[in-house]
Structures are given as C-alpha cells and as structure tokens.
Design a protein around this nucleic acid. Structure first.
Length: 596
RNA sequence: GGUUCCGUAGCUCAGCUGGAUAGAGCAACAGCCUUCUAAGCUGUGGGUCGCAGGUUCGAAUCCUGCCGGAAUCGCCA
C-alpha cells in the first residue's frame, strides 16, 4: 500500500531532519481534496513541535525528502500546513496493469480460515405478510453477509421464524370460525396474505366483542381480558403447547401457506438463507440455562415463583426470565438460541440484524449471558438499524399505512416498465428480455434507495422519490454499466479490444487518473464496509465511481481517438470500471443489465 | 423520570476513528445530443452543520449543558 510506504518514509524523514521520533499516529495521509493539486496529503501541524519551524518550512523539508527518497513521488506542493504529494504516473499505471485483467475479483479477499460469522436477519412472524420494514432488514442482512464474504469470511445466513404464539392462534381461530374451508388456492391469494387477512379479521371481530363488553359496564382492561375470542385463542395456545393433534395440524396447514407466500417474496427480493430456525423448535430452550443460573445464585426467585436477573448494578433494571407459572419469555428463548448457535457454529461473530427498538433487549441479552458465565457473549453483535418512516410519519397498521413488500416490488416493476418504455430503450428486446430488464431496474432502484442510507439511521421512504431513476439512484449506476457494455460491444465490432501493457507510452489524462484513483480505493472500501457492517459505504462508493466515470466518458473520446494504444487503454479502463460496478452492486444484491 | 440514538441546503442523504473553502442528488433556473446510450454532462442560486460553552495549532466530527425529535425501560415478541 502506497499510503503505508509514505507513512514509513515520513517517519524516517522527521527522524532524520529534526532528530526526533514522531508519534506514528500523528502521521496521517489522506486523499488530496479536489481543489488542490496532488494525490495524497500529509498534514504537518503535529510535527511543528519537533521541527521548531513554520508549517510551510516543515512541509517543504519533508516534501523534499520524500521527493528524493521515494520513487513513487513525482513532485509536491505546500499550502499552509498541508503537504500535497503528486504520485508518479507510473505508479498508477502499474497498479492498473496489475489489476485490470483480474478485475472481476478485484478487492475481494480469499476465504480465510477464521471461525464462521453467523448472521441472523429477516425474522418474520407468520401472522402477517412482510412489509417495508422487513425489506430494509432483509436487504441490510443479505448485503452485510455478501460484504463479509468479500472480506474473506465464512458466513452463515440464518433466519429465525416466529411460528408460534398467541398471534398465530388468532389467525387459526379466525380461519376456523370464518374460513369456510377456503384456501389460498381457492381464493387465488398469496398464502401469507391469506393468513394475514384472517389475523386482521380476528382483530376486527375481537374489537367488537370488547366494545360490547364495555357497553355492559366493564372497564377497557377488563373487557380485553374477558373477550370470549381472546379466551378461546388462549385455550388454543395451551392445546398447541400440549401437542394437541388437531390444533397442530391446523397450525401446520396455516404456516405452510405462509411459508409458500414468504418464499415468493424472498425469491423476488433475491434473499437466501443457509439455515432457518423455527421458534416452535427453540422456544423451550433457555429454561435450563436460567435454572442453572438460579442454582448458581446468579439469578433470583421472587415470592410468586418468577425468576429474575438483577441488572441494577449495571445501570439497568431487573429483567424477568421465567414467569410465575414457569413459562419462558422472549429473553429466555434468546438466551437459549444464542447458546444453541454458539454450540453449533463456534462463531467468530454472532450478528443479529434487528431494529433499534430492541437495543435494550440486546444489551440485556449480552449482559445476562456474561453473568451466567458465557464469555463467548462478546461475539454477539446487534446490527441495529433505524426505522423506516413515511413522509407523514411511521407506518401504522391501524391506519392502513403499512407498505406491503410485494405491492412495493410490483410498483417498482411497473414504474421501471413505464419509464423504460417512454425512453424508448427496449427496441429489439424480446418480451422476456424486456420483463427481466424492468425487474432488474425496479429492484435496483428499490434496493439502492434503501441501502444507500447508513443502516443505523432512521430513514424516510418517500414513494415518489424512491422510484426516481435519475441522480443518486440504482438505475443511474446500472445505466453507466450498460453504457460501458455498449462501448465494448461497439469496440469489438471495430476489432478493438481492452488492452494495456506498461511498456505503452501513454499520456495519462486527469480524468483517467481520477477514475484509476477511485478504483484503487475499492479494496479499502470493502474492508471498511465489512468493519462497519455498512452497505451504505459500498453504495456511496459505487455512486462516486460512476459519477467520476461519466465525467470521463463525457470529456474523453474512447473509440474516436486516433491513437490505438489510447483506445485500448480507455477500453481497458472502462471494462475495469464496469467490473467494479458489477461487483459492488452484487454486494448490495443488485444486478446490472447489459443494455438499458 | 432513567438509558440509548438522532438533529448538516426547501426535501432526501454523504462527510463524523479531529485537518484546507462542509459535498451529492431531488426540486428551481441556464446551457450541451449531425460524434462511443441525454436514465448522461456543465453551470447558477441555496448553509449561524439544533443552541451555548469547553478541549485543540485546528471541531460538522471529541467532551459538558440545554433545546427539539425517536426508541426503550412489560409475567408482549
């Protein structure tokens, strides 16, 4: 790495020039800002105490030293305390030659032998279809998984499906009562939608019961408890827990419908898992851990028999782990599944992609595991992402403002179709090709719109803006790639092919160098995105690269140049860029078309 | 009330592990297609980086306080 070389040389420069050893942390090399001449910049302010000279003199001395002692440095200039270093043309060309032929894999690490990274995302309930919030979760999880793989990690994608509990019983009961033996097939509905409708039906009917009870003089709380529908659902849950055959069959039937529906949504989103956990299989886990903790005196029991963890010494509250009737709560299950996953995979990291409303939950989870003596709890990482809000506020099912995942994807497809058609871009496409293109563009727009935002931040989803296809959008990036492909096609018709060797004497234009410099950064971006678990860093990089390339494309003729070496070099540069666009988009789960 | 997170252009977002004159896109306005795809490129206007202190040669970035917003603190998941 050139930065490292400059840092090392700067160290010896200061040592030799000023007779003192600098703190290595003070030697910072950064990209030179656009308005100044140079490639890298050294900030010399921290060395003034050592040099006992003015910033300009200090920078000048170091600059001279680097210029004579580093062959990569062509020249330098000093502005105030900033030493701008110009890297030689040959350095950039060598970098280019060494990497462009294998640019499909440029920046990707080979699979290392570290322990696996287990990443959980999606985690749906089976009583409701997936919505916009799930889309963000899925896209982030899947992309982070890809990014970690690009960093050479062995990654396992897991999903934990909440397939049991009172909410599923509500849907089951509603279907029993009002379903008339209808099925998704008979109604031509997607299974998750079908079951979700019965959940809504239950809610509606139950509200009326509650209203009736309140009219009879009961308080709201009492009415909620006394509602016959609720009582019946609770009975059903108890039967389920006792393995009642009839209830279990009904449960399986409804859940299978839901899974068939989810599968379609996942498939269209392009999401895959290596392993799916079902809560019905894991919800009893954790009890043993808690009972052991109780025995060891880490946890305590209250008079009513409930079991708690005391976290007050850590600035948190007491946390319930077993109810007074001995049943477990969400936290208990999570303790169990965490241990299960740890035992199964012995992971380096256990990543949970879960919304920031559960920050507290994960703090507590980690703390309790540590209290129980599981030191591996350190490997737990809550990848906390922000809520998706609509321009008018958050999504509320009561107000019917929930954005359904399938509807949204379909809208993106339709918008992509209309826009593409109106631009006249599908001449010569078969119907299948055209539909594939609309899907690629629509999904590209949606995914990019969501992933370009820093995961930890709340974001606003404006349906109008998100389907914009110009500016900082997925389609713009896809378009640039298609443009390059078009040039490459045209080139081969003219018998020009991407080619460059270091022997070629070439005058490297500013725009060409700017593009190469961005390509040069890609491996570092992948690394940082991996460290920060941030698809947004990849998205923003891809945009910067594409923006830069388009300026090059606009200013510099590729095929029209008279110099064959220049033509071949620019083709090679373009091909390199298109490969990086493709690979960075792949890290976001976005495809790039050959033509659009 | 306690804890955590957020506040950057009219809007959506970068920049935040301290460095130069705070950047993009959208929206508005003005240009560029007889030349490799105009889903593009160029230009103009638009900012007390919530407010006030502090640390520092240097703060949008770090610390403290305040203001505004969100989440959370369930024998829900």
């Amino acid at each position: 790495m050139i930065e490292k070389i400059i840092i090392e040389k700067t160290y010896s420069a200061i040592e030799e020039l000023f007779g003192q050893k600098p703190d290595i942390k003070h030697i910072q090399i950064q990209k030179t800002k656009k308005d100044f001449e140079g490639d890298f910049t050294l900030v010399v302010f921290p060395f003034l105490k050592l040099s006992k000279k003015s910033p300009e003199q200090t920078a000048d001395l170091i600059g001279k030293y680097l210029e004579t002692n580093l062959k990569e440095i062509e020249s330098y200039n000093v502005i105030k305390g900033f030493l701008n270093l110009l890297i030689s043309k040959n350095f950039w060309l060598e970098f280019f030659v060494e990497n462009y032929k294998n640019s499909e894999n440029f920046g990707f690490e080979k699979l290392d032998d570290s322990k696996p990274y287990v990443i959980e995302f999606s985690s749906p309930n089976t009583n409701k279809p997936l919505h916009l919030g799930h889309i963000r979760n899925n896209l982030i999880g899947y992309s982070v998984s890809k990014i970690l793989q690009a960093n050479g990690k062995n990654v396992v994608n897991v999903n934990l499906v909440n397939d049991r509990g009172i909410h599923i019983c509500k849907s089951m009961l509603a279907w029993q009562k009002w379903g008339d033996e209808k099925t998704p097939e008979t109604l031509g509905l997607k299974g998750d939608k079908f079951v979700g409708d019965f959940y809504v039906r239950f809610d509606k009917e139950n509200k009326e019961e509650v209203k009736r009870l309140m009219n009879e003089g009961y308080s709201e709380d009492e009415s909620n408890l006394k509602s016959p529908l609720i009582i019946e659902a609770q009975k059903m849950l108890k039967k389920w827990e006792k393995n009642d055959t009839e209830i279990r069959q009904l449960w399986e039937r409804l859940n299978d419908w839901v899974y068939a529906g989810f599968d379609k949504t996942y498939k269209r989103l392009g999401i895959e898992f290596n392993k799916i956990y079902f809560e019905s299989e894991t919800y009893l886990l954790g009890k043993e851990i808690v009972e052991k903790g109780l025995k060891d005196g880490v946890l305590f029991k209250k008079d009513d028999g409930s079991v708690w963890a005391d976290l007050t010494s850590d600035g948190l509250d007491e946390k319930l782990l077993l109810r007074s009737d001995g049943t477990s709560v969400y936290m208990t299950q999570d303790l169990g599944t965490a241990k299960l996953r740890h035992d199964e995979y012995l992971p380096e990291k256990l990543i949970y992609v879960v919304g920031n409303e559960q920050n507290y939950h994960f703090n507590v989870l980690e703390l309790i595991l540590k209290k129980l003596g599981y030191n591996w709890a350190d490997c737990i990482k809550h990848l906390s992402y922000g809520m998706v809000e609509l321009p008018h506020g958050k999504m509320k099912s009561r107000e019917g403002t929930v954005v359904d995942a399938d509807d949204l994807m379909e809208e993106m497809f339709i918008t992509a179709r209309e826009t593409t058609k109106s631009l006249g871009k599908i001449d010569g496409f078969s119907e299948t090709e055209a539909n594939n293109l609309f899907e690629t563009i629509g999904m590209g727009a949606l995914k990019y719109f969501i992933l370009k935002v820093d995961p930890k931040k709340n974001m606003t989803f404006n349906p109008v803006e998100s389907i914009d296809f110009t500016g900082n959008t997925g389609p713009f990036i896809q378009y640039t790639s298609a443009r390059i492909k078009s040039v490459l096609r045209k080139a081969s018709e003219m018998n020009f092919y991407p080619e460059f060797s270091i022997n070629s004497d070439i005058n490297l234009l500013k725009k060409e160098k700017d593009v190469i410099k961005l390509l040069f950064e890609y491996p570092l971006i992948i690394k940082q995105a991996g460290e920060n678990l941030s698809p947004a860093m990849i998205a923003n990089y891809a945009y910067d690269l594409v923006k830069e390339y388009n300026q090059f494309y606009q200013e510099v003729p590729i095929l029209k140049d008279e110099n064959k070496i220049s033509v071949e070099f620019r083709l090679a540069l373009s091909e390199f860029v298109s490969n990086i666009i493709k690979s960075s988009m792949e890290l976001l789960g976005i495809l790039v078309p050959d033509r659009m």
